[in-house]
């Protein structure tokens, strides 16, 4: 009951933190030279990123630097033009066969996405379903769980994010912070190995930011691998294992969050941090 990620039940948080090797390298995410263009506009210009299992990686950068785009590439909501992205050792969106890359079919891509949870800035809850319906929909529809079992687990997850009394409510009846916590529970219901957060607190009124960050901290403590695009420097400093600063489609610098925030090596990082802090 106390763990938010039933898939790793019983595993002490510290152990998964140090990174139980997922594919021998201990890397949950390995992006190499990722390029992405929209028409003639090159948004990602060769991103390299490694996230170890159990790590929290915070992505920081000015508007338009390509953070969202990169995050969406990780679960193949956007197709990359060059480079490669592996999650838990598995190539995303493509299959290697006979030394050649084959594009995956829609079904295979969908299957890959099931182990990657995503939380959006604008929640994107399904407004025509109750809170419980939102959380149980995917596991039941995709045959992960029987209806009764899914409901029980959904109730547990919602209890855990502090919404045990809102099962029957519709998203429209909830505050932004509550909606975002439902969205997190919805993603967790698929038992992901990796969670992607795209500015999860930017659409929230200031007094609601804390409740969502608390859930995320909890999740991090339980050993979930997370990539978080955020402007919440406090969160990055407190729970981040790495901080990656992006600008203009490249990684400008990365390292220990406390280190980078305290003395950024690059001028661009420095000016950006000065504005955010």
């Amino acid at each position: 009951m106390s763990e938010l990620i039933p898939g790793q039940a019983g595993a002490p948080a510290a152990e998964s933190r140090t990174g139980a090797p997922a594919d021998g390298t201990g890397l949950m995410v390995r992006a190499e030279q990722v390029h992405k263009s929209f028409g003639s506009l090159e948004v990602l210009k060769g991103i390299d990123l490694q996230v170890r299992a159990g790590e929290v990686c915070c992505l920081l950068g000015p508007s338009g630097s390509g953070k969202s785009t990169f995050l969406r590439c990780i679960n193949h909501l956007e197709k990359i033009n060059a480079g490669s992205i592996r999650v838990d050792g598995e190539l995303i969106g493509y299959r290697e066969r006979g030394g050649r890359l084959h594009e995956m079919r829609e079904k295979e891509v969908a299957a890959q996405r099931r182990s990657i949870g995503m939380v959006f800035q604008r929640f994107n809850l399904f407004p025509h379903m109750t809170v419980l319906g939102n959380v149980t929909e995917a596991p039941v529809l995709l045959g992960r769980e029987k209806k009764a079992a899914a409901r029980e687990r959904a109730a547990q997850l919602l209890e855990r994010v502090g919404l045990g009394d809102k099962l029957g409510a519709y998203p429209g009846q909830l505050s932004g912070g509550q909606q975002q916590r439902v969205a997190i529970a919805r993603a967790l219901a698929m038992r992901p190995k990796l969670m992607l957060f795209d500015e999860p607190t930017s659409a929230l009124d200031p007094e609601l930011v804390g409740e969502v960050l608390d859930v995320m901290k909890d999740l991090a403590r339980d050993g979930m691998t997370m990539i978080v695009v955020t402007h919440e420097i406090g969160f990055a400093r407190e729970v981040g294992d790495t901080l990656v600063f992006m600008d203009g489609g490249v990684v400008v610098e990365s390292g220990d969050p406390r280190e980078v925030i305290a003395n950024p090596r690059h001028e661009r990082t420095r000016t950006f941090l000065a504005k955010v802090l």
């Binding site: 299957a111 996405r113 099931r114 959006f120 994107n124 529809l141 995709l142």
Partner: peptide, 14 residues
């Protein structure tokens, strides 16, 4: 809203 499709895709729906 486009976000609805994306959220459903991200959950692994076809």
């Amino acid at each position: 809203d486009e976000g609805q499709t994306e959220a459903a895709q991200a959950l692994g729906m076809s």
